[in-house]
Design a protein around this nucleic acid. Structure first.
Lengths: 351, 351
DNA sequence: GCGACGATTTAGATCGATCTAAATCAGTTG
DNA sequence: CAACTGATTTAGATCGATCTAAATCGTCGC
């Protein structure tokens, strides 16, 4: 009923053309702001479009012109604030280019990711920004190249034969470790969690290299649970047992927030008895008390970078693959402090 | 170059039909899983599609069938975790229905919202889920009804002539106020911020009604800044001056987080000297220390509800407008506690 | 053996814009 | 005044699927 109505009284380009006494082709040129039409004709046609309430039909245009002004964004997780900020950055650039974002959530599952990518392809997106799910095969990306579907990897990468926008995690880790080492800490742990992917690996490697460079133990790496409530319960891993730490570098701010809660529960004062450094510096970091020292990775800027890479590639498909690697920046606040000796009963080591 | 390639070797339904020695029409029926085709023909066609690597072209289908399997979601803010969870709920349902979400961010600006809605319409979305920007006119929604574009309002509403999925804010406020009153608090403030819209008004009204029902001052309503760092600085508004409160109900968890930080900075112990109740109960609430008492509004469930309303309406456009109003639920944790008298030097009142 | 009937299949028009190649027009030029 | 510009405009084919209405096929009853 309604849809019949919608269909019936839809005003098309042909209607516009007739009312303006020009051809469909001319009307089309007006829409596309071609310089070919004369100013008077343009004005006339535009007036008629206004008058009739003409609505451009992207779908029809897309079919003929093989372009949809639509891009697909695949992220593994919607509720992590990091991805949200990334998305905000992507949206800003894509929107400014007059395009829209089709958003899907892979849940970090490769099978699901594959389904979703096929669906985007069916929908005719012009390109895709993908944060590959953990364990994504290189062949996936190769397949997409074969499809001629412009692709930008973001935050994680599975191949170098394709654009990538991400973070220099190693540099971030070095800043975190150096900061703690300069405060006098020697027993520094790395707390990580989550699925394993390139960004995960780069952070571990970065931590180990930085520790080694300082002559500290690079193997003090501890996995914590994924759920934030469970992370809090795991705080004891760092403060009890034979291997106690006086400082922890966290995989991201979510881990930092969880450990912060857990240390609070254990009665340990962060920024006095224990130092904590987060990673990513999402908005909440500054709202924590004590304020969280964190390595800022500027997710919004990365999103913008990824979107720009994609727009460039759409304009010039033959460009060589490019990398955009952002330098992170340590923000020192209250959660990290000078080492005050074995206030936790930490065992003393020689050297 | 590449796009020529893409276009040239695209395999269409006609190719499939030829290879399978059937007509285009039959192949189309196979795709759409029509019961009209025989099992053998179906198998044959499907085999050919597989073999040729056929990719369905939604765009072409959409043009003819006037349906896009696409819905638009307009939200005012991407980085508020509340909206993110809402979005996750919407995505789950829409995805399960085989459709995709086109996401845009209005930034809570009416002008921008209007542009975006037009754009969605041009893109041919089948329907829209809209959280109206503050100060949205009723006429906007009426216009969309005129366009025959199925619409669901979510969280905020500007008219009753259109589906709506939201929260019973008044009930949530009553739970929060009752809880604090039962703990012995009498000087209870409401801390709010942000742009003014229906959800804002419903919360204020709910607070006032609940306070009045308890014989408490309904006018103790204080606006705090929008930026989270600035909220912290505003904490003194509740603890200093002539009008001191012993407990605060917050507009949402973001305000609660900010105030919590500010109170910490003032050396006030939350859950002992002062009680704080959040609103929304986003994931972070349980990670705060002390754990935040908060009124859970289940954003993900609301998102699911909104998406279901929209799917129903797509199926039956003539349905009367429906409302889905979720009952929120108070989660009592550590940030609210029994009133201990004037530990803040609170002035004593008679009655 | 013929018309009827249910089950399958199909030709051809159609959705609404874009593209190509050619037509039209006003103004110059020799 | 015919030929030649450059600037505008246009007819008609086209993108790839869907829809309508009609054709085909095998079988069954009489």
């Amino acid at each position: 009923m309604l849809s019949e109505g919608r269909k019936k009284n839809r005003v098309t380009l042909l209607d516009v053309a007739r009312h303006a006494s020009v051809s469909r082709a001319t009307a089309s040129l007006v829409i596309r702001k071609s310089p070919l039409v004369s100013t008077e004709t343009r004005a006339k046609v535009e007036a008629v479009m206004q008058e009739l309430g003409y609505v451009y039909n992207m779908g029809a245009a897309r079919l003929r012109a093989d372009r949809s002004l639509t891009i697909g964004v695949v992220i593994p997780n919607l509720v992590n604030p990091f991805f949200t900020e990334l998305l905000a950055g992507i949206d800003r650039i894509i929107d400014a280019a007059g395009m829209v974002v089709i958003l899907v959530n892979s849940g970090d599952l490769v099978a699901r990711q594959e389904t979703l990518l096929t669906r985007m392809r069916e929908h005719g997106v012009d390109g895709i920004i993908l944060c590959p799910a953990a364990e994504t095969e290189m062949s996936l990306v190769e397949k997409m190249v074969e499809w001629d579907l412009p692709l930008v990897q973001v935050l994680r990468r599975v191949t170098d034969d394709c654009d990538y926008a991400g973070v220099d995690y190693a540099f971030g880790m070095r800043q975190a470790v150096d900061h703690l080492a300069e405060l006098g800490h020697r027993d520094i742990a790395f707390a990580l969690h989550g699925p394993i992917h390139s960004a995960y690996q780069e952070r571990i490697d970065g931590f180990r290299d930085a520790m080694e460079a300082r002559g500290l133990d690079p193997e003090n790496v501890i996995r914590v649970p994924h759920q934030i409530a469970a992370i809090a319960e795991a705080a004891g891993l760092f403060t009890e047992g034979s291997r106690r730490s006086s400082a922890v570098v966290c995989f991201n701010d979510v881990v930092a927030l969880g450990l912060s809660a857990g240390l609070y529960d254990l009665g340990i004062s962060i920024g006095r008895d224990f130092s904590l450094v987060g990673f990513d510096d999402v908005a909440d970091a500054e709202a924590m008390r004590p304020r969280l020292t964190s390595v800022a990775t500027f997710p919004e800027a990365i999103g913008e970078g990824a979107a720009k890479l994609l727009l460039d590639r759409l304009a010039q498909p033959d460009l060589a693959p490019r990398k955009l690697v952002n330098a992170p920046q340590l923000h020192i606040r209250q959660s990290s402090a000078i080492w005050r000796g074995s206030s936790l009963g930490r065992r003393q080591e020689s050297g």
